[in-house]
Simulated scan of single mutants.
Amino acid sequence: VNRSTGGCFLLLGFSDRPSLQPILFLLVLLCYLLTLAGNSALVLLAVRDPRLHSPMYYFLCHLAVVDAGFTTSVAPPLLAGLHGAALRLPRGGCLAQLLASLALGSAECVLLAAMALDRAAAVCRPLRYSRLCSPRLCRALAAASWLGGLANSAAQTALLAARPLCAPLRLDHFICELPALLQLTCAGVRGAHSVESQMLAARVIVLLLPSAVILASYGAVGRVVWNMRSREGRRKAVGTCGSHLTAVCLFYGSASYTYLQPTHSYNQGRGKFVSLFYTVLTPALNPLIYTLRNKEVKGAARRLQKSLGRRQDRQ
């Protein structure tokens, strides 16, 4: 068996579908620009407007930064590869992309769980909300999201880097994604099965533990909403949680398909289309999901626009 500890990875991307490449290039470019613009606008509004200085928008700011960074770790090399030829990445560059995307993706899992806890507290314990979701607790949860994501990513990347890869280093994918890279590891190496099982267990924990928190939070919300007699109260509760629940379904649905299946059953050709959904499309949709029906964000945008207009008039 040929083993490789260096060299370059050949990422085929969508070079096997040349007629699809121009459409995907425009779609990815549009989504990337929307991701940067939409998430930057969300952070700007939440930082500048005192009315948005609440736990919900604090976590939303962190989610916006994660989404922008997540897509940035993927979109530029993907756009470069959509010009027709397959993309070559050195081993170090491939591992760096894996480290960044895994860290940001794992952080998003924990952030979405923290946001679910915040929404459950707002609906189920409105009178104790300010005490339950104190600034100190919010900062701790945000720090846990970033540090937990980085720790998971560093551990998984280090374990992969220590394993020999068998030539040819060829991926039917557009990014260096963990399930695809694991298929390149040499079979028959001592302890390989144990290491792969540990890595799968870590991925299961990162995805399923936050999922359990989200399900428990929305189970509590559902019970409260069911017992409400006021239709207006139900509508407000659903509006409070609907945007976050939509974002959760979009992200977890595609990420779970990619990371919760055994390595031997992962199909790279099908997996790259699923990965396109949660690495490029979902981060572009999140700002729209959180703002289209959000009166507070719309009000903050109008106030910022008026403030900028007055400044221009003074000048």
Rank of each mutant, 00 (worst) to 15 (best):
A284H: 05
I175G: 02
V297Y: 13
S15V: 12
S256N: 12
R125E: 15
A144H: 10
V28R: 04
A301M: 07
L169D: 06
L171Q: 01
R48D: 07
G84Y: 10
R203N: 13
H173F: 13
V74W: 14
G84A: 13
K236H: 14
A155Y: 15
T258V: 15
D313R: 15
A237K: 02
A162S: 11
A162T: 01
V221L: 13
C138W: 06
I214H: 00
A255R: 13
D313Q: 15
A155T: 14
N152R: 06
P50M: 01
S101K: 14
F251Y: 15
L78R: 05
C124L: 13
L87Y: 07
V213F: 11
L30F: 15
V213C: 01
P77S: 03
L34V: 00
G6F: 05
S230R: 11
P262F: 10
F251N: 03
Y266H: 07
L141S: 00
A122K: 08
L104S: 02
H244N: 11
V74S: 03
L99Y: 09
A151I: 04
G7E: 02
V123Y: 09
R310F: 14
G69L: 06
A100I: 09
G69P: 08
R235F: 10
R311S: 14
F14I: 00
V297F: 12
A122D: 08
A284W: 10
